[in-house]
């Protein structure tokens, strides 16, 4: 079960412990926001979700062992919150529709950087379990084992989801199989390749 916790931290109690916990939690807020953004695809919903997860984590702080992986723990809380919210609003598809329209409007902003919008849109077309697996491993910096813990599934399942997500994403980007008019197939992949090359040249 992961690396053994820092002994000094496990001895902390009361206010001192809360302070250490809170400092670590605050440092994780940007990451929680980013993960929530990829799950919901909507900035406002994402911040609501990230705030809920942050408070849940704070309320449950006594059950967290200091010195263990708080990032994975909070991501798991956020993910559970996301799916329970989704279940609750199962019938209010109206909301989903509105969020989708907002996303599309944002994507149609001509000033926005092209490749990222195409990627965002393509990501939103993936099944959520593939999307979350790819984000955790491909962008969140988690090992397959940690991602499996967060998603509550087997390591092999995460691996296959990540691999399917990568293939699907490439397929969508290459064929331009997303909802956007006036753009030829393959343009998205071209701009992503060009952008990635430019980025790695800068480094």
């Amino acid at each position: 079960m992961g690396p053994s916790p820092d002994v000094a931290q496990t001895l902390l109690e009361g206010t001192a412990r809360d302070q250490v916990f809170q400092r670590e939690l605050v440092a994780l807020i940007p990451h929680l926001r980013a993960f929530a953004r990829t799950l919901t695809g909507d900035a406002t919903q994402a911040d609501d979700l990230a705030q809920d997860a942050m408070i849940k984590a704070w309320d449950a702080r006594a059950s967290f062992q200091l010195g263990t992986n708080m990032k994975a723990w909070t991501f798991m809380i956020l993910r559970n919150q996301f799916y329970s919210d989704k279940r609750r609003s199962w019938r209010s598809t109206q909301l989903d529709q509105e969020a989708a329209e907002r996303t599309l409007v944002a994507v149609d902003d001509p000033g926005a950087p092209l490749a990222l919008d195409e990627l965002r849109l393509a990501m939103s077309m993936l099944p959520s379990e593939q999307r979350e697996a790819l984000i955790l491993v491909g962008a969140g910096g988690f090992a397959y084992e940690e991602a499996a813990d967060i998603c509550g599934c087997a390591v092999g399942t995460v691996k296959s989801r990540v691999s399917r997500a990568r293939k699907a994403l490439q397929g969508i980007l290459e064929t331009g199989a997303y909802d956007r008019d006036g753009r030829g197939a393959g343009d998205a992949m071209r701009s992503i390749l060009a952008d990635a090359e430019r980025l790695s040249a800068v480094r």
């Binding site: 926001r33 980013a34 705030q51 704070w58 990222l116 990627l119 990635a196 090359e197």
Partner: peptide
């Protein structure tokens, strides 16, 4: 695939690097 990976990280890091809205700290 590598290009997609680079962009994916960029997409995620862009949000990580955004300033955190005050609301978060107020709630906490």
């Amino acid at each position: 695939q590598r290009a997609i990976g680079v962009k994916l990280r960029q997409m995620f890091d862009d949000v990580v690097n955004e300033p955190v809205p005050d609301e978060f700290l107020e709630i906490l």
